[in-house]
């Protein structure tokens, strides 16, 4: 089974976002576990922006992309936004291939993600 760690980073007081860091590989073998954890997290999430930090995500397949899209829509339904930062080239190739980057904006770093206010729901 591919290994995937999810780490919810502590945010600064009064911050309007929180960061979830993905580490490892995301595919069918660990997707259900990740889905259970993140879905619960997003259900309880109150801030206007959630950021997925993919610095350490080495692999994702189409099912992983499907999962990301479903989380995006889940947040949008609640009037919140999802942004992705620090995507590795291999993962970015998959995102571009499937067209995810047309739907969810990817940024090289946190600063540029926070500075861009055009993608709000």
């Amino acid at each position: 089974m591919a290994h995937l760690d999810l780490n919810v980073m502590a945010s600064e007081p009064n911050a309007q976002h929180q960061i979830v860091q993905f580490k490892g590989e995301m595919d069918k073998s660990n997707l259900e576990q990740a889905r259970a954890v993140i879905t619960k997290f997003i259900d309880d999430y109150q801030l206007p922006l959630l950021i997925f930090d993919l610095t350490y995500l080495d692999f994702i397949n189409s099912e992983g992309v499907g999962f990301t899209v479903s989380m995006f829509y889940k947040l949008r339904k609640k009037g919140q936004d999802l942004k992705i930062i620090k995507v590795q080239p291999k993962v970015e190739d998959v995102f571009k291939l499937i067209g995810l980057t047309e739907l969810i904006k990817c940024y090289p770093d946190l600063g540029s993600a926070l500075a861009d206010i055009t993608s709000s729901p």
């Binding site: 899209v69 291939l97 067209g99 047309e102 739907l103």
Partner: peptide, 11 residues
């Protein structure tokens, strides 16, 4: 050649 576009059912 990258086929481009976005997957059906995504948006």
């Amino acid at each position: 050649i990258a086929s481009g576009g976005i997957a059906l059912g995504m948006t």
